[in-house]
Design a protein around this nucleic acid. Structure first.
Lengths: 337, 337
DNA sequence: TTGAAAGCGCTAACAG
DNA sequence: CTGTTAGCGCTTTCAA
């Protein structure tokens, strides 16, 4: 059995309160007493029971991170950065996967499991604006991504529209005119897919180029395999294009795979642009031009914001939205034809 | 304030014990009483306080998964499967990153944080056989990977030596003779790198081919960038080779990138073999032949084993080692020259 | 500066 | 079948 505060107190011949004071680095403890207590702690190998502390104090020193799926590289890299940022603040991270499924996302928001942690960083994929009410929760909550605007919770996110527009303009500037899109979501408006498509359309409109639905390929989850499928579909349609904008990197990579399989040269025949700046993008063949949406900043800001809300305990002012800076990472896949 | 058992009991006009019985699905509750209690639970939106339950029962319904880094695809995909398996068993997962650093790994094993969960699935990278004593811990522990043999804890792992040997033999069988290795760890014996290199040497020896140190490139963490660096080094050495065995997929992918950059055709000039069967390997260009080491089975078995130990609470018998089956996934990168 | 004691919300004897 | 009660290990008033 692990040693408790009582055991330490008994051994050090002081009261349990004094031991507690030492552990929590409270100032008012005599140095002789402190030394005695510390000796006893070392001797017994005492380590505080975090569950008991959590019950008593209401603070668990843990947060939950909910993402669709860690097998999606973007979320894996995001999670890595969230965990690192939390660790730096002395907080641990419980990771939940929702599969991007609306029902599971809604269920998670009301799950008793959440009371094991002090708050939630939530990256929804299936929920939409109509579910904004579900975000009225009794615990600190930070939302990532754009499915929901103007909600009751803090929001940390990337500039999807502006960044996608910049990506498209970059393609346009390099002389491409017929830009296919891979990974769109039929009829979506508020999700990442819808927003990035809006950015694409804005760029087209600004350049006086007509939007052509036939150049848009739709898919479900943004897996590499779906990028490949989209590209096969585009090729099957027989539509002509000189560039592809993958709505994220894995889609772009999957599409690029199929392009080369079909004997189409990248970038000579078709330029490829991604979105996310995954760690692997400099190592694809050819290396992938993409948009760095500020993932690291998003992770750090989400953790910082959540911990602030936890500390403020309700008195923290109205919900805020914070936007990350983005940047185009130019690589080989979009080199001049 | 959230409703408690007391609130529910008061509203349903029963004792707190009865409410507890209902919640924990204990059989001995009259159906009329049960209905009353359930109504009260619904009315108050009662949700059990898991922290209190954990303190009282000693069971938290959570486990810890410690991996080097979620930004490494192998660990991200492993974590995804561990979390899914745990979820199926009604358990949540706290994820820790050690960076593969020995000191951090050792520190984690003694961290008070671990008492927030019921047990640990641990994938060490920096620790070695000399640290086997650190695995004598007071909580249920399952070790993943091969850094440590014959330890006091259950061990779920892949067949590194046999699988690497099979991979090398596959290359040999397809007519390749000078097989470079990317990602070796200088002087390592018990780690994945050392074991996979042993498998490589076994295959060479069995085929009567001499082992040539000049064909081996060393690296640190198995990042894609390091695979690229290794390949640059190999090319700089001017040594001749007709195949590359990447000790994992990301290394192989990074190496393949550099090969093509140098105008060397894969697989015509050089065949490339990976290890891990990452989700992206069918979509690289060319698609990557690799070893599926049984990652999904490992994740599910690790969770099952850990939960069993947790349930057995010490009376579970001696530590066991479980080995996953492996399989070569043949793709384009090793097609006949 | 330190001690005694209450109680966080729950489970599990033990009674009835 | 249901109620009473004693803690799990900790933090935290309140006194001394």
């Amino acid at each position: 059995m692990a040693a408790t505060l009582h055991d330490v107190a008994r051994m050090a011949q002081v009261s349990i309160k004094t031991v507690s004071n030492v552990i929590n680095e409270r100032p008012n403890v005599g140095s002789a007493t402190r030394a005695k207590v510390e000796a006893a702690i070392a001797e017994l190998g005492y380590t505080p029971n975090l569950t008991a502390r959590g019950l008593r104090s209401g603070r668990k020193g843990a947060i939950t991170l909910a993402v669709p799926d860690l097998a999606l590289s973007y979320f894996a890299e995001l999670a890595a950065e969230v965990i690192a940022a939390a660790e730096a603040a002395g907080v641990v991270v419980l990771v939940e996967q929702t599969g991007g499924d609306r029902e599971r996302e809604l269920a998670l928001l009301k799950s008793p499991r959440l009371n094991m942690t002090d708050g939630l960083i939530f990256s929804p994929l299936g929920m939409g604006q109509e579910d904004v009410g579900a975000l009225e929760v009794s615990y600190p909550l930070v939302i990532l991504g754009e499915r929901i605007f103007e909600g009751p919770a803090d929001h940390v996110t990337m500039q999807n529209v502006a960044a996608a527009r910049a990506a498209t303009e970059y393609l346009l500037d390099s002389g491409r005119r017929r830009i296919a899109v891979v990974g769109a979501h039929e009829g979506e408006v508020v999700g990442s897919a819808g927003l990035r498509l809006s950015g694409y359309r804005e760029a087209l409109a600004a350049a006086g180029i007509e939007y052509e639905p036939n150049l848009i390929a739709h898919s479900g989850l943004w897996h590499r395999a779906n990028g490949a499928t989209c590209m096969r579909e585009l090729l099957a349609r027989g539509v002509d294009f000189d560039a592809v904008f993958g709505l994220n990197d894995t889609l772009a990579l999957g599409a690029m795979r199929v392009l080369q399989e079909a004997g189409i040269s990248v970038p000579a025949d078709v330029a490829v642009m991604g979105f996310d700046d995954l760690e692997e993008t400099p190592y694809s063949i050819p290396s992938l031009t993409t948009v760095d949406p500020g993932r690291g900043w998003i992770a750090r800001t989400a953790v910082k914001t959540l911990l602030q809300r936890i500390n403020d305990a309700g008195s923290g002012g109205p919900a805020e939205t914070r936007l990350a800076e983005f940047e185009i990472r130019r690589r080989e896949s979009t080199a001049a034809a």
